[in-house]
Simulated assay, not measured.
Amino acid sequence: MKGIERLVFVGLNGYAVALDRETGEIVWSNNELKSGYVTLLLDGDRLIVSTNGYIFCLDPLTGRVLWNNPMRGYGSGAPTALVSVRGQSSQVLVEQGAAATGARAAATAGHTSHTTSS
């Protein structure tokens, strides 16, 4: 079994899928969700999935449905915003990724200019 830190979660056309972050290999796929756009939030040890007005809670290591809620009366459609105290919104993750990429590029540039001048 892969640890949660080794997984990347993807939501596509009514599917939630876990991929191995190193190889891209499918670790598990859940096709029990309703079809449509899929929004995901990793909330600690739970993967929260929203699709067409339904909310599912999956075990992120296996993809097994732990619970679901049809959210009757709240409408349906996408995109859905999911936020958690334990999880992070996708915008925060994008900003953190950009900052990390910039820091790596700056470190590489500094290292390259230092080694070429000696």
Results as ranks from 00 to 15, higher is better:
residue 1 M to Q: 15
residue 3 G to Q: 13
residue 4 I to T: 14
residue 5 E to N: 06
residue 6 R to L: 05
residue 8 V to G: 05
residue 9 F to H: 03
residue 10 V to C: 09
residue 11 G to C: 05
residue 12 L to D: 05
residue 14 G to C: 08
residue 14 G to H: 09
residue 15 Y to R: 05
residue 15 Y to S: 08
residue 16 A to I: 00
residue 22 E to S: 10
residue 22 E to N: 10
residue 24 G to W: 02
residue 29 S to E: 12
residue 30 N to G: 09
residue 31 N to T: 10
residue 32 E to G: 14
residue 34 K to A: 07
residue 35 S to L: 11
residue 35 S to P: 10
residue 36 G to L: 05
residue 37 Y to C: 09
residue 37 Y to N: 08
residue 38 V to P: 00
residue 40 L to I: 07
residue 41 L to Y: 01
residue 44 G to P: 01
residue 47 L to M: 07
residue 47 L to T: 02
residue 49 V to G: 07
residue 50 S to W: 09
residue 50 S to E: 03
residue 50 S to G: 14
residue 53 G to S: 05
residue 53 G to K: 03
residue 58 L to Q: 13
residue 60 P to M: 02
residue 61 L to C: 04
residue 61 L to V: 12
residue 62 T to P: 13
residue 63 G to K: 11
residue 65 V to W: 13
residue 65 V to E: 10
residue 65 V to M: 06
residue 66 L to W: 11
residue 68 N to W: 12
residue 71 M to L: 12
residue 71 M to Y: 03
residue 72 R to D: 13
residue 73 G to Q: 03
residue 74 Y to K: 03
residue 74 Y to P: 00
residue 74 Y to N: 06
residue 76 S to L: 01
residue 77 G to L: 02
residue 79 P to G: 09
residue 79 P to L: 11
residue 80 T to N: 11
residue 80 T to H: 02
residue 81 A to W: 04
residue 83 V to W: 08
residue 85 V to H: 04
residue 86 R to Y: 10
residue 86 R to L: 13
residue 86 R to N: 10
residue 87 G to S: 08
residue 88 Q to R: 11
residue 88 Q to H: 08
residue 89 S to I: 01
residue 89 S to D: 12
residue 89 S to F: 06
residue 90 S to W: 14
residue 91 Q to D: 14
residue 94 V to N: 01
residue 94 V to D: 05
residue 96 Q to E: 12
residue 98 A to C: 06
residue 98 A to E: 15
residue 102 G to R: 13
residue 103 A to G: 09
residue 107 A to G: 08
residue 108 T to S: 03
residue 108 T to L: 12
residue 110 G to R: 11
residue 111 H to T: 10
residue 112 T to M: 06
residue 112 T to K: 00
residue 113 S to A: 05
residue 116 T to M: 04
residue 116 T to S: 14
residue 117 S to W: 01
